[in-house]
Design a binder for these strands. Structure first.
Lengths: 333, 333
DNA sequence: CTGTTAGCGCTTTCAT
DNA sequence: ATGAAAGCGCTAACAG
């Protein structure tokens, strides 16, 4: 077992309460005894028991982080950002990859662990857990998404605007038959991007063909499949915009497998700017979303909400995406 | 505040202990009262307080996971595997990306949170925390690495053998001037791979030129830099083996930037088989390490050690890597 | 089968 | 400035 405050108290010839005060330097303690206590604590290798402390203070100094899949660079960088800030501020991060239908399980698990707040970047069909969470008074920050009908603190990218920019760029290159690989209904980012795509098309007076919109499920293989379907169209699109780089990369595979060249035969663009999008031979045009930054801001916002529960106003931080033009887009044939 | 066991007890007309028993169904409880208690608990939305439970049981049902950088797909997939199994078994995962010099900080933070065990995939210059950990009696599983002079349960890939295979393959293709991009001294995997590289070379009667071994620090940019140096050699190598795919991909950039072709002018291989290594246009020959599997096995092993502290023997699980031949290696010119 | 008692390690009034 | 006492929510003997 670990060293307890009691043992230190005995050795220092003081009461446990004094040791507690000396170690947390909260209250008035004689400087000399405080020093003595600290020295003994260090000698003994004392480590405060976070469980005990959390129990009495009703504060675990832990935050929960819910994400759909950590293998996805988009999310792993978010985790990285969250983790950095949290650690820096003394909070632990309990990570849960969510796969339940509505997020209830994940939230319950986290709440059971008495986390002080939750950063929610999960994607669920119907998110029933969030409103309950609100009722419980647990601070929540939504990351990378908004939930329709649920006002909440959040950190999101300006997906719609990025989508408008990307689509407009494609139109300027002379494309009119532009396909869109949609992510998921449940992801607000996907919806926003689709809206941006349509908005840009309409602004240019180009009709929106439903057949040009395919589902890709945000995954590499989804993008692959979607592109295959799109290429089978008659006539096929001359440009494809995918809801994230993962799907774009999947689409890229399908395009190359079909013996087509990028961008000579078909233009391709995505969202996120993951590391591999910049690699030689890939060079995907995309919208760069500052993922790590999102995580950091999310953590900072959550901790602020935790430590200042009085502040009533909701904060929504919107990060602008930056369009990165590489070699995957060219003039329409 | 959440619902407590006391309130349930009052409503059910029984004592808190009975509630506790009914809910954890550990001991003999009248079936009828048990049902009544459970119903009330559900109605009230009772959620056991893990802090309180952990305090008395001296078991937090949480494990710590230390990794160098979660953005790296190698590690993020390990996290994924660990997380899956842990969640499945009722454990929470506290993730820490370690950046301290010796891992002390990370371990302290985790121990303070009373984790029941630690999965350690960190990479430190001098790892002073581990031996102390052993002394504390906290179960530890090393993941992807061994620590010299520290026998421990671990899950590792057979790096040396994979390296021998890869190097031998290159030799069979006619290469004799094979460069190696080394990872980090502190990573046992790196050392093992270097040893395998040398072993294969010597077995073929090819001298090992120190100038052909460069440090790449396990990072993309390190691989890039290392390859630049290697290409400046006179004569340059005809093949480059990198300690991981990240560095190999970095090297790939440098090679292409130098106007050379892969594999016509120079062959390239790596380790890990991350998703992007398989992509069209990249098609990197590599040794596939089952990362998610490693994480899963690591978690299973740790939980076993946690739940059966009596079992004294040390288990070392060694996973064979699978060589994946793609198009980045060709015959020597 | 169930209630009472005690206590996990720590913080926090309330006295002194 | 410090100690005594109480209690956070829960479980674990120990009686009964």
């Amino acid at each position: 077992m670990g060293v307890t405050i009691k043992e230190i108290a005995k050795l220092a010839g003081v009461s446990p309460s004094t040791v507690s005060r000396a170690l947390t330097d909260a209250h008035y303690v004689d400087l000399e005894t405080a020093e003595r206590v600290k020295t003994i604590a260090k000698q003994l290798g004392y480590r405060p028991n976070a469980l005990a402390r959390g129990l009495v203070q009703r504060k675990s100094m832990a935050i929960g982080l819910i994400i759909p899949e950590i293998e996805n660079p988009f999310y792993s960088e978010i985790v990285s950002g969250v983790e950095r800030i949290a650690t820096q501020r003394g909070y632990g991060v309990v990570v849960i990859s969510g796969h339940s239908a509505n997020g209830e399980q994940e939230v319950r698990a986290l709440l059971g662990r008495q986390v002080d707040g939750i950063i929610h970047a999960g994607v669920y069909r119907t998110d029933t857990a969030l409103p309950n969470l609100r009722a419980e008074g647990v601070p929540v920050v939504l990351l990378g998404r908004k939930l329709p009908g649920f006002m909440s603190d959040c950190v999101v990218a300006n997906d719609r605007d990025a989508s408008v920019q990307l689509t407009t760029y494609l139109i300027q290159l002379g494309h009119t038959r532009i396909a869109y690989i949609f992510g998921k209904n449940v992801s607000s980012g996907s919806t926003e991007k689709l809206a941006g795509y349509k908005e840009a098309l309409e602004a240019a007076g180009i009709p929106v063909h439903p057949e040009l919109v395919e589902h890709g499920d945000l995954e590499f293989h989804g993008g692959h499949r979607a592109a295959q379907k799109l290429l089978a169209l008659n006539p096929p699109p001359t440009a494809i915009l995918a809801g994230n780089d993962f799907m774009a990369l999947g689409a890229r595979e399908a395009i190359l497998e079909a013996g087509l060249r990028i961008p000579e035969d078909i233009s391709l663009a995505g969202f996120d700017d993951i590391l591999f999008s910049s690699m030689k031979g890939i060079e995907l045009t995309t919208a760069a979303v500052p993922r790590s930054k999102m995580g950091q801001l999310g953590a900072e916002l959550l901790i602020k909400k935790i430590e200042q529960p009085d502040a009533e106003q909701i904060e929504q931080i919107i990060l602008e995406a930056r369009i990165v033009r590489r070699n995957s887009c060219g003039p329409a044939r």
